[in-house]
Simulated scan of single mutants.
Amino acid sequence: MKKNIILAILLPIVFASLFKAGTNFDYSTYKDITSTLLAISGMIFTIMGIWIAFLYPNALLKITNKNLNPADFSETSEDTKRLEAIVGSIIKSSLIATSILILYLLKAILSETQIYQEHIHIIKISALTATIYLCYFQIESVVQVVYANISFLNDIHSKRASRIADDQLHK
């Protein structure tokens, strides 16, 4: 919650700073950034979707079953946290890709209008501000994916170590 408030406060500050600095950028530079964002979003969306289907097949079966019973993750909160991080990164990545689509659509629709020509600097700064935020959210999404993977590996290693310790006790 605090993070959202901080981001909401920073949005006008970023916009005003870019505006005051007289930031001017070429559309091709902007397109390179958004293309990279789309590629990362697609990667996260695809790989993490496969990850969920592979690691949590019971959750997937319960979702696709006509009886929408929630999957039970009560045994280990670590699995729940990991799944939340993965699903969160998928949702963020899909929202980022959708936002970029909307930005491109708005450019296509507005680029030849009088309003665009009269306010091109403000529109460009607005698009750059939005892109900066999309980059932040994409980086946050990648960090969530990395964290989920590290958490998964740590869980595997601790379970393996526990199993080896149990085997040695029973010998």
Results as ranks from 00 to 15, higher is better:
K107N: 15
I96M: 01
K66Y: 13
A59W: 10
L7W: 07
K62Q: 14
W51L: 10
R82A: 03
V143P: 03
L68H: 13
K124Y: 04
L61Y: 14
S126W: 03
D72W: 03
S74A: 10
D72M: 07
G88M: 01
Y56C: 02
D72L: 00
I63N: 08
D167I: 09
N4E: 15
T131G: 05
D155S: 14
R160G: 02
W51P: 05
A16Y: 12
D32E: 14
I122N: 09
S111T: 09
A21N: 12
Q144Y: 10
T76Q: 13
I86G: 01
Q144N: 15
A39V: 12
I132Q: 08
R82Q: 11
S111E: 15
A71L: 09
L38C: 09
F19S: 12
G22K: 04
Y56P: 05
N4T: 11
Q117G: 06
D79R: 08
D167L: 12
I120F: 09
A130C: 08
I139L: 13
N149M: 15
L106Q: 12
I115E: 13
S17T: 15
I123S: 01
I132Y: 03
T76E: 14
P57A: 09
R163K: 11
A108E: 14
M43F: 15
Q168D: 13
I9H: 04
T29S: 07
I102Y: 03
L101E: 00
H119M: 07
G49L: 03
L10P: 00
T64D: 03
I164R: 13
L134A: 05
F152C: 02
L128C: 06
L169I: 02
T113E: 04
I91A: 07
D32G: 08
A97M: 04
K81H: 14
V142H: 03
P12G: 04
F73Q: 08
L60W: 04
S151C: 03
I120L: 02
R163Q: 09
I164P: 00
E75N: 10
I156P: 06
A127I: 12
N65L: 01
I40R: 00
D72R: 02
I90E: 05
K124Q: 14
I96D: 01
K62S: 10
I139P: 02
L128I: 15
I13F: 11
A108V: 04
S151W: 04
E78G: 00
A59L: 13
I125Q: 07
D26E: 10
P57F: 11
T113Q: 05
E112Y: 12
D155R: 08
L7M: 11
Q144P: 00
P12T: 05
S111C: 09
I120M: 02
Q114I: 10
I86F: 05
T64P: 02
I5R: 12
S99H: 00
D166T: 05
V14M: 09
A71I: 09
Y56H: 10
I122D: 13
T76I: 07
K20G: 10
A161E: 15
G88P: 03
L11Y: 14
Q168C: 02
L134F: 06
V14C: 07
